[in-house]
Design a protein around this nucleic acid. Structure first.
Length: 281
DNA sequence: CGATGCCCCTGAGAGC
DNA sequence: TGCTCTCAGGGGCATC
């Protein structure tokens, strides 16, 4: 599943295909993903013009001319593919429908957008654009990690007194919105802080290092087109390549690129953590 | 309130 | 080949 860099990469690939175009036909192939689709999804999309394509945390937000915004979350296995349009140097013909294609939008000009999500942890909703921040899935989100609201004093304040490991705090979308398992592991490695450390024991200098590392790793990953593991692909079907730059994620037993110590794997709140016991403390 | 587990679901890969 | 088991970019919700 896509974390912030993957969602941002999808957004950038999709924006020129969607923005300014009219949805001629919406094929809603099942009634729900994680939650039921909003009532009348197909008719509410049909004939609408997409005015903008934005992103908040891991949510894609397509602003429609009817005053509603289409909200899409990709969950763990969601993919969005474009066909029938010129994407970069390539022309993608419409492929045969695949298993787990749940929502298919045909646009004026011939492009087709297909949402595929095998595990169905994703979400689709429609909500009034002028109240988008009040949507139940968006209302509690913390600041964007690449925005001005995420800085060292803020993070230090949110970590103060907290008994949870620093990794759990960074994964908490109410504290900072858009990080997931990969980029938290990678950022903590860059900051030389162990994911096992309790948040209340992280000092101000380390908070500064974590903020810088989070920003740096997200920017590097976006520059690389995200990370392609398993399901994820860019909107144009190409693979991102940041996975080749992982220092620790998925590298248990491998040599730390900084000090050579073997990378360790642990389990925190049911998910794998990777860190270097040699240079992260 | 804060912390922790469970659960939703399918598919890929490993081991036998 | 086929079974069983583990694991996977998320996150809401119940429970202590």
């Amino acid at each position: 599943m896509p974390e912030l860099p993957e969602v941002e990469t999808v957004r950038r690939g999709l924006e020129p295909v969607l923005a300014g175009h009219v949805i001629l036909h919406a094929d809603v192939r099942r009634p729900d993903l994680r939650w039921p689709f909003p009532p009348g999804l197909a008719p509410r999309l049909t004939g609408a013009r997409v005015e903008s394509l934005g992103r908040r945390s891991k949510y894609l937000l397509a602003g429609l001319d009817r005053g509603e915004t289409l909200i899409v979350h990709l969950g763990m296995s969601g993919r969005i593919l474009v066909s029938g349009a010129q994407v970069g140097a390539f022309h993608h013909p419409h492929p045969a429908p695949e298993k787990h294609d749940h929502l298919v939008l045909d646009l004026d000009g011939g492009a087709r957008i297909t949402l595929n999500d095998a595990r169905r942890f994703g979400a689709v909703d429609l909500w009034p654009s002028d109240a988008i921040g009040g949507h139940r899935l968006l209302a509690g989100l913390g600041p964007e990690p690449l925005g001005n609201g995420f800085d060292a004093p803020y993070l230090a304040g949110r970590m103060a007194g907290r008994l949870a490991p620093v990794k759990a705090v960074l994964l908490d979308q109410r504290i900072v919105a858009g990080l997931g398992n990969i980029y938290v592991c990678e950022a903590l490695w860059r900051a030389r802080v162990s994911p096992l450390r309790l948040a209340r024991d992280v000092g101000p200098g380390e908070a500064e290092a974590i903020v810088a590392a989070v920003r740096g790793v997200l920017i590097d990953a976006i520059d690389a087109g995200g990370s392609s593991l398993r399901d994820y692909r860019r909107a144009d079907g190409e693979l991102g390549y940041f996975q080749h730059a992982f220092a620790v994620y998925g590298r248990e037993g491998g040599a730390c690129p900084r000090c050579g110590t073997a990378i360790a794997r642990s389990v925190q709140s049911g998910r794998s953590s990777f860190h270097c016991p040699g240079c992260q403390s």
